[in-house]
Simulated assay, not measured.
Amino acid sequence: MTEQNQYGREQALSLLREWTQSDSLRKHALAVEACVAAYGEAEADRLGLSGAERESLLNLYSTTALLHDFDYERHPSREEHPFVGVRELERQGWPVELRTAILGHAEYSGTPRVTHLDKVLFACDELAGFLTACALVKPTKAIADVEVPSVKKKMKDKAFAKGVNRQDVIQGAAELGVDLDAHIAFCIEAMKKRAADLGL
């Protein structure tokens, strides 16, 4: 088995399903993956990657997103998540870049976000959750009907999707060096392409 296959999307999905029973948490992982993978594609294009190099980068972005919260259901406390999961990933031999990005997506871990992947995961995590919430209050429950102005308006409504940290969304776009409106639009488009998988 090649390293790519051993630490590929199917293995990440299998681990996610093993540790996470909640359908909404599994869908959250897929939503974050949609956004992170789209940024991975853009980065691969920017770097002019092709063939195995491109595949390797896209695999890294995809698996990191799928596994960022895989331990959350079993270990939701700040003392344990994502540290327990990262220790398990290290034990299994998952790449250090993936583990570092997962640590970095939790502000309280103290792990700096240095790489593009680190910043993308942080920027997409809370936003993917917020966009899902925005879609689910639409009569159609469809991500296709979510628009940037309404997302911005709902971000100001503190009663809506209270669990989503707005500051992380704003800070994430800033760290990535992307305009917030453009970041929201980019993630909506990415999620629209995976709407069937996300149930949106």
Rank of each mutant, 00 (worst) to 15 (best):
T140H: 09
E107C: 00
I143D: 02
A52W: 07
A135L: 06
R54S: 01
H183E: 03
D168W: 03
E88P: 00
C134E: 01
Q21D: 11
Q167V: 10
T63G: 06
V148L: 05
A52T: 12
A133D: 12
D157P: 01
Q92C: 00
D197S: 14
N5A: 14
P149V: 12
R91P: 00
C134P: 03
V84Y: 14
L117N: 07
V32G: 11
S77Q: 15
L103K: 11
P76D: 04
L58V: 09
A144Y: 10
L25R: 15
K153Y: 08
D179C: 02
K153I: 01
S56P: 00
L66S: 09
S77A: 12
L121Y: 06
L16N: 12
A34G: 04
A44R: 09
V32T: 15
E88Y: 15
D168Y: 06
L47I: 02
Q171D: 12
W19K: 14
R166E: 01
P82G: 10
F130Q: 08
L49F: 12
I188Y: 02
R74L: 15
L16R: 14
A182L: 13
G85E: 02
D197I: 03
L131V: 06
V178H: 02
A173G: 11
L67N: 04
G199T: 01
L121G: 01
A29Y: 12
L47E: 02
G8W: 03
V137Q: 15
R54P: 03
D45A: 03
V164G: 00
Q11W: 04
K119R: 15
A42R: 15
L89P: 08
A142D: 12
A133M: 11
Y7H: 13
K141M: 11
G93K: 14
E126S: 09
L57P: 05
Q6T: 13
F160W: 06
G85R: 08
A44V: 04
M1F: 11
G172I: 09
D145A: 03
L67T: 01
H81S: 01
A133V: 08
S22A: 13
Q11M: 05
Y61S: 03
A31H: 01
K27M: 09
V36K: 02
C35H: 11
L16I: 13
V146H: 07
D71M: 07
Q4S: 01
T63M: 11
E90G: 08
Q6S: 11
E97N: 10
S24F: 15
Y61P: 02
H105K: 04
A190P: 03
V32M: 11
K156I: 00
T111G: 00
H116N: 07
E126D: 11
A52R: 13
A123F: 03
H75Q: 07
L58Y: 12
M155R: 04
A190I: 05
L121W: 02
A190V: 04
M155I: 07
L131Y: 00
R91V: 03
A161N: 10
V178W: 00
K153H: 13
E147W: 05
A142K: 14
